[in-house]
Every structure is written in structure tokens, then in C-alpha cells.
């Protein structure tokens, strides 16, 4: 009986972990190529969640259907942000980049507060309380859809980076900045594209996440920290690493919530982060050379 409980918890943790993974992909892509740590990560995801909420409330569009729209909007936001602001701090020290992104985060929180108020809100879809029964497993429908959607978007991202010329060019920029300049790639545009793609991931992840959690303006920082943990565990810049790390954290958080107190589950994640930083700072799937 309790074995069944753990299995149920693990499976739903795994599905949530896929969304975490998708969101972490956004952080990883930006860091891997532009070498900027997006400290406004969680806030951008919250922005995506609110955008999805608006579409759901005003036009009744299902969050999963509004996903491409929200991703496109966040892409535009990220593209402009990189080209107008972040680009200008690329040569500055780490703490200046951190502070710029932190101030962007503060501004995003403020905008959400002004527009939506401080209270938690959600999108109540018609299938919100349905579930699939597979043998002893009982899984929420929304979670299954959410997990599948996260997998599809991640798959598209892989395909983009491995099979399209633009994707390959972006990877080339990430591997060798000077080399990319030398062979005549338009690095400035590719960087903006990369940042846009990173934030588009967040938009998609936000849209999906709205199926599972209530959104409020102060939700951001915990998602930022979560994404850091995942990306460092999986390896900064490694895309499969981010997905794997997401699933790992999703499952372990869910299990820790059952075994320990739910409020202690993030202590578990931070402990894991410290351990990975010390033992394998390049992450589980990261490249060894750093």
C-alpha cells in the first residue's frame, strides 16, 4: 500500500520534473552560449504564467494551446532584453551582471504586482480534477499533459540545436566566441536569438506550470533557485543534463515532501546543490574541461 503511494508520488514528481527541466533548459541555453547567469529566470517564468492566465481568462484559451503564443511573446522579450541591455554588461564583472539581472527581476515582480495584485490566482481547466488509472498508478490528467508538453518542447529545442543551421551556428558561438566572429557569424544577432530562445523556454514552461500551481508575483525567486540547482546538477550548458536534473529534482523533491516535512524539501535540494558543486562542479552531464 505505502509502496504504491511512493510510486504514485514518484511518477507525479517525475512529470513535474519534466517542466522543471524545460525551465532549466532556458537557463542552461543562455549560460552555455552567452555566459550570462539569468538571475531573473523565475520572474520571467512567472511573467509567462501571468500571460497564460490572461489568455485563459479573457479568451478562454487552454494553457496548453496558448503555449506557442506565450513562448513567442517571451521570445520577443528576451531578444530585446539581450540586445538592448544585457549585451552592454557582457564585459563587466560577474557581480554587475548579477545586479542587472536582479534589477530586471525586481522590475518584473513590480509590473506583475501592479497589474495582477499580490494574491495567488489559477487557471481552472475542465479536466483539472480528472486522472488516469494505470494499474495501481493514479496520475492527474493535467500532470500527464504537462509532462508530455514539456517533453515535446524540449524535443523541438534539441532538434533546433542539432539540425538547423541557425542552431548549429549558436552552438558554435557558445563553443568558441572568437572563432565564431572570425568565420563571420553575426554573433550579436545569434546572442539575441539565444536569449530569446532561453526565455521562450521559460514562457512555455510557465504556460504548462499554470496547470499545476497557482501564480503570484513573488513566486519567481524559488523557481530561479530551483533552476540553478537543476542546471548545476545536470551540468551548466548541457541540454540533456538539464532535463535529467529536472526529473531528478522533481522526483526527489516529491519523495522528500512525503518522507520528511514538505517544508524541508527545498533544504534537501540545496543540500544536493552543495554536494554537486563540491564533488562534481561540472555537473552530471557537463563537459569535464572548465
Amino acid at each position: 500500500m505505502s509502496g504504491g503511494l511512493y510510486l504514485n508520488v514518484a511518477v507525479s514528481g517525475l512529470l513535474t520534473g519534466l517542466i522543471y527541466g524545460l525551465s532549466a533548459l532556458g537557463l542552461s541555453v543562455i549560460f552555455g552560449v552567452i555566459r550570462i547567469v539569468n538571475f531573473a529566470h523565475g520572474e520571467m517564468m512567472v511573467l509567462g504564467m501571468f500571460a497564460t492566465l490572461v489568455l485563459f481568462r479573457a479568451l478562454g484559451i487552454d494553457p496548453l494551446l496558448s503555449l506557442p503564443l506565450v513562448a513567442a511573446a517571451l521570445f520577443a522579450f528576451g531578444y530585446l532584453l539581450q540586445d538592448l541591455m544585457v549585451r552592454r554588461v557582457a564585459h563587466l564583472a560577474d557581480h554587475m551582471q548579477f545586479l542587472l539581472m536582479a534589477s530586471v527581476a525586481v522590475m518584473l515582480i513590480s509590473v506583475c504586482l501592479m497589474m495582477f495584485g499580490p494574491d495567488a490566482q489559477n487557471a481552472q481547466v475542465s479536466y483539472g480534477f480528472d486522472s488516469f488509472a494505470i494499474g495501481p498508478l493514479l496520475v492527474d490528467k493535467v500532470r500527464v499533459y504537462a509532462g508530455i508538453a514539456a517533453l515535446i518542447v524540449s524535443g523541438l529545442l534539441f532538434a533546433f540545436f542539432h539540425y538547423t543551421p541557425t542552431g548549429k551556428a549558436i552552438r558554435a558561438c557558445g563553443d568558441n566566441y572568437t572563432g565564431a566572429l572570425v568565420v563571420g557569424l553575426n554573433v550579436r544577432r545569434l546572442y539575441a536569438l539565444t536569449f530569446g530562445i532561453g526565455t521562450a523556454c521559460l514562457g512555455a514552461a510557465g504556460a504548462i506550470m499554470l496547470l499545476l500551481v497557482d501564480v503570484h508575483p513573488y513566486l519567481g525567486p524559488s523557481y530561479t533557485l530551483l533552476a540553478f540547482i537543476i542546471v548545476i546538477i545536470g551540468g551548466m550548458g548541457s541540454l540533456p543534463g538539464a532535463l535529467l536534473g529536472g526529473m531528478l529534482i522533481g522526483v526527489s523533491e516529491a519523495l522528500a515532501g512525503v518522507i520528511l516535512q514538505p517544508s524541508l524539501k527545498s533544504a534537501f535540494s540545496f543540500g544536493l546543490l552543495i554536494l554537486v558543486l563540491l564533488v562534481r562542479p561540472q555537473g552530471l552531464l557537463g563537459k569535464v574541461s572548465r
Binding site: 545586479l99 534589477s103 530586471v104 525586481v106 522590475m107 513590480s110
Partner: peptide, 16 residues
């Protein structure tokens, strides 16, 4: 809510 913190963030970004 948020107007103050928005300008706050704005000032910090401007300085950076």
C-alpha cells in the same frame, strides 16, 4: 503596489 519597487529596480539597472 509595485510602483516603488519598479523605480527602484530601474535606478539600479541605470547605474549598472
Amino acid at each position: 503596489d509595485g510602483v516603488k519597487s519598479f523605480f527602484w529596480g530601474f535606478c539600479v539597472a541605470a547605474i549598472v
